[in-house]
Amino acid sequence: LIMVIGALITARWIVQPIDRLSRTARALGAGELSARSRLARSDEIGELGYRIDEMADRIERLLVTEKELLANVAHELRTPLTRIGVALDLAGEGDSEAARASLAEIAIDIAELETIVDDILTAMRFEVASSEFPLKRAVLPPAEIADAAASRLRARHPSRPFVTNVARDLPAIHVDRVLFRRVIDNLLENAHKYSPDGRAPLSLEVACDAKRVVFEVRDKGIGILTDDLPKVFTAFFRGDKSRSRETGGVGLGLTLAKRIVEAHGGTIEITSKPGEGTNVRVAVPAVD
């Protein structure tokens, strides 16, 4: 009798959690993404329950991310499409001067949309890459990256005060020219967008620190809230919930910057104070 009772207890101890796992799996399959097994066990069944719950968490996050992406892209498309429609209406009514006047704003909108599309495609390439992301590296002088990024910023925002300070005799860096320059471009563009006072200066400094070359972007803009700092590298995170056109985008810029820098064996760090400005420091290994 004791053996029978022991067998029943053991069977129940095994069957109950398996039944819970089965119900959780069925609920997830039916679209109930909040379903979790929450098994508090330290054996193999508990480990299986933990893995199922972890998978459910990741699926739920992926779906939330997909919805955020669609919402952000829809938001960014609305204004340029409206402007294009207005320009076409004006041209159709014979008001060619007014239509021509809107072309400059449309060109800016299209450039912003191209950046968004590039960000999304680059993010997809990083996600698809199963191991190390394939970089097209070349040995480059840091000044080449800094000068190209500075020229781009000055061309896009000629009235913005901007200072570059590139140290002499810097060691070369082994980087993907397109992707790494994109990181610096993104940081400078962020510094501009989040410095609403057009007289506030921006700066780009490049120096050597031990065996690393450091690119540092500084602004005196609105800064980042302390609670938001740990989240700035999270995909689609935006501290400015108002989503104004001046600070548009889909929230992928810093996420991609971090992935690109880390793919080069480097680091990226942000320090900021609300109302005082932000410093972003990117360090990559120097070529020996």
Results as ranks from 00 to 15, higher is better:
residue 59 I to M: 13
residue 60 E to I: 01
residue 60 E to V: 04
residue 61 R to V: 10
residue 62 L to N: 13
residue 65 T to N: 15
residue 66 E to T: 09
residue 66 E to M: 08
residue 66 E to N: 10
residue 67 K to F: 15
residue 69 L to P: 05
residue 70 L to W: 11
residue 71 A to T: 13
residue 73 V to M: 04
residue 74 A to K: 13
residue 74 A to F: 02
residue 75 H to S: 13
residue 75 H to K: 09
residue 76 E to V: 00
residue 76 E to D: 14
residue 78 R to Q: 09
residue 78 R to W: 07
residue 79 T to K: 08
residue 80 P to S: 01
residue 80 P to W: 01
residue 84 I to S: 00
residue 86 V to A: 03
residue 89 D to W: 05
residue 91 A to K: 01
residue 91 A to V: 00
residue 92 G to R: 07
residue 93 E to W: 06
residue 93 E to Y: 06
residue 93 E to H: 11
residue 93 E to K: 10
residue 94 G to M: 02
residue 95 D to A: 04
residue 96 S to F: 09
residue 96 S to V: 12
residue 96 S to P: 00
residue 97 E to T: 14
residue 100 R to W: 06
residue 101 A to V: 08
residue 102 S to N: 07
residue 105 E to N: 03
residue 106 I to D: 03
residue 108 I to C: 05
residue 111 A to P: 02
residue 111 A to L: 11
residue 113 L to Q: 15
residue 113 L to F: 07
residue 113 L to S: 07
residue 114 E to L: 11
residue 114 E to D: 15
residue 115 T to K: 11
residue 116 I to A: 08
residue 116 I to G: 03
residue 117 V to K: 14
residue 118 D to N: 11
residue 120 I to Q: 11
residue 121 L to H: 10
residue 121 L to G: 01
residue 123 A to N: 06
residue 125 R to D: 12
residue 125 R to F: 07
residue 126 F to K: 05
residue 127 E to Q: 14
residue 128 V to I: 12
residue 128 V to M: 11
residue 128 V to A: 10
residue 129 A to W: 02
residue 129 A to F: 02
residue 131 S to K: 13
residue 133 F to N: 08
residue 133 F to Q: 07
residue 134 P to E: 04
residue 135 L to K: 06
residue 135 L to D: 04
residue 136 K to H: 15
residue 136 K to F: 12
residue 137 R to D: 03
residue 138 A to F: 02
residue 138 A to N: 06
residue 139 V to T: 12
residue 139 V to I: 10
residue 140 L to V: 10
residue 140 L to C: 05
residue 140 L to A: 04
residue 141 P to L: 03
residue 141 P to A: 09
residue 142 P to D: 05
residue 144 E to K: 11
residue 144 E to N: 03
residue 145 I to M: 06
residue 147 D to I: 09
residue 150 A to W: 00
residue 150 A to C: 05
residue 151 S to W: 01
residue 151 S to T: 06
residue 152 R to T: 03
residue 152 R to P: 00
residue 152 R to Y: 02
residue 153 L to F: 00
residue 153 L to H: 02
residue 155 A to E: 12
residue 155 A to Y: 10
residue 156 R to G: 10
residue 156 R to L: 13
residue 159 S to F: 10
residue 159 S to I: 13
residue 159 S to R: 15
residue 160 R to L: 03
residue 161 P to M: 05
residue 161 P to N: 11
residue 163 V to Y: 00
residue 163 V to H: 00
residue 163 V to F: 01
residue 164 T to M: 07
residue 166 V to M: 01
residue 166 V to R: 00
residue 166 V to K: 00
residue 167 A to Y: 03
residue 167 A to P: 05
residue 167 A to I: 04
residue 168 R to S: 13
residue 170 L to Q: 06
residue 171 P to T: 09
residue 171 P to S: 11
residue 173 I to V: 15
residue 173 I to R: 06
residue 173 I to D: 06
residue 173 I to S: 07
residue 174 H to Q: 15
residue 175 V to P: 01
residue 175 V to L: 15
residue 176 D to A: 08
residue 181 R to G: 15
residue 182 R to L: 08
residue 182 R to H: 12
residue 183 V to W: 04
residue 183 V to N: 10
residue 184 I to N: 03
residue 185 D to C: 07
residue 185 D to M: 07
residue 186 N to Q: 14
residue 186 N to H: 12
